[in-house]
Design a protein around this nucleic acid. Structure first.
Lengths: 260, 260
DNA sequence: TTTTATAGTTGCAAAAAGCAACTAAAGTTT
DNA sequence: AAACTTTAGTTGCTTTTTGCAACTATAAAA
């Protein structure tokens, strides 16, 4: 029983329309039969800095939740945005000035009460970037990096953004287990100890060095930059770069099994 | 730079609105500043029958894609639907008459050209159910189960539904690796050989019997129905029921590693 | 009773991971 | 300059997990 084909449907607005005709007719047909919810796109932008996971938040300047911290985002504009994905990419650049190395759709949240103004749906994306590459554009006082403890911030968030953030953190953690996305939290060239530290910060547990290296090397997604090393205290570390292979890497076990 | 707070933004419709006042003012504020895309919810409903994965499709009775097969779904109705999730549950019941044992949001697809009528976003859910429990309601000629070969059907699908179906199949396969969702494709009581066969049908590869049983039993998500057996040719098989534990089961390896 | 078909178990070899001790290469201290 | 400290990286052995094949079990059919 297809809803859009049932003329007795309640909640319908606008007249019943006869058999379709010309192009302009088709264009308006159906699309005007229901009230539309508002549609926004929000971003959970992660980075790792000072040994902690951080998320980019903005302070809301207007109602609702004026003065509250919230995820950056806003209304999709059908005139400018060719797709939801491009809308997310646009908003990411507007917030950070960076074409993020990693942007993935998280989930869509929509209900009549998540925004007091209207029935609103928001499609949330999560992005990963190296903290070095970020320049917060616009009013710096309004947007800043906030540390994530567990799966929440120390500040209360507006709308249902605390829940969204928790979901994003969970997704990030689970994807660390079987993908290589953590490389997008580091600069283009990085060392294995830096990569391992990134995993440990996000998974919040120490990992075994030799198991970690075995796994990462065997996956063959990293390219050794022969001769290039990161200096510091102790022995210099070999620099690597992520090979953006399309092929999926097989992992025998989830990485958190390497816990010590 | 928050889009919704920038009065110089292009693409905005409606007047600039001064400092917010009463509740009705707030309700209408912002939500009317952009044209809204149309918003629909579509369903990828899977079942396994005759040794093959099947998906529920409907034949479109109207433009666009009149006469084409498509995923069931339709416009979200803000008057009736409290949330996107409940909208999906409603449409599922309308299509199958079944409160599906498993319904999960897949992804949101939205762009200006996926529907010739309008800029449309659709949030797609995927559902799993036992083929026994399904009664197609409404016009039986319009909705039916269609076999899935690889990640596509033999028929061409309208809109971008072929792509959506492929994504759904991929999600289903990958979730088989580390969850127990396959149990929702079987009736409440089932045997381990039936469960293994379900995995093999979806993953399209034979699995090792003893490894499969070891894994499933060790996960401790199944409850043995002592004394109850499924009769047939050969030795009768022990019946089990899924324990709907909240806790996550740990799997050392992805299940397709048990391939023979 | 024998055969066939399917269910379920067992034992061992192979692969992978856990773990600790080792070597390596730099700067710092004495 | 030698010894010490710090971090990087390796190695080898133990334990765990898996792959695999052969085995037993229990029913119906021949």
């Amino acid at each position: 029983m297809i809803e859009r084909d049932d003329p007795a449907e309640p909640g319908r607005i606008g007249p019943t329309i006869p058999e379709p005709g010309g192009a302009e007719f088709l264009r308006r047909y159906d699309a005007t039969r229901y009230e539309k919810p508002s549609f926004t796109v929000d971003l959970v932008i992660f980075t790792v800095r000072d040994e902690h996971l951080h998320v980019l938040l903005v302070k809301r300047a207007e109602h609702p939740f004026k003065g509250c911290w919230a995820l950056p985002g806003g209304f999709l504009d059908p005139r400018r945005d060719a797709s939801v994905d491009t809308c997310a990419a646009r908003k990411l650049i507007e917030e950070t000035g960076v074409r993020a190395p990693y942007l993935e759709q998280l989930k869509t949240y929509g209900s009549r009460d998540r925004d007091p103004r209207d029935w609103t749906a928001t499609t949330v994306y999560f992005a990963l970037m190296a903290s070095e590459s970020v320049r917060l554009v616009g009013n710096q006082a309004e947007a800043c990096w906030v540390g994530v403890r567990g799966d929440r911030t120390d500040f209360e968030l507006g709308f249902d953004h605390a829940r969204i953030l928790a979901d994003a953190v969970e997704r990030l953690r689970s994807k660390l287990e079987y993908t290589h996305i953590a490389v997008h939290l580091l600069p283009e060239e990085f060392t294995l100890p830096e990569l391992q530290r990134t995993y440990e910060i996000i998974l919040q547990q120490p990992l075994d060095k030799s198991s970690f290296r075995r796994r990462v090397i065997q996956a063959d997604m990293l390219e050794e930059l022969i001769g290039k090393q990161r200096d510091g205290f102790g022995r210099p570390a070999q620099l690597y770069r992520f090979r953006d292979y399309d092929r999926r890497t097989f992992f025998p076990r989830s990485i958190s099994r390497h816990a010590r």
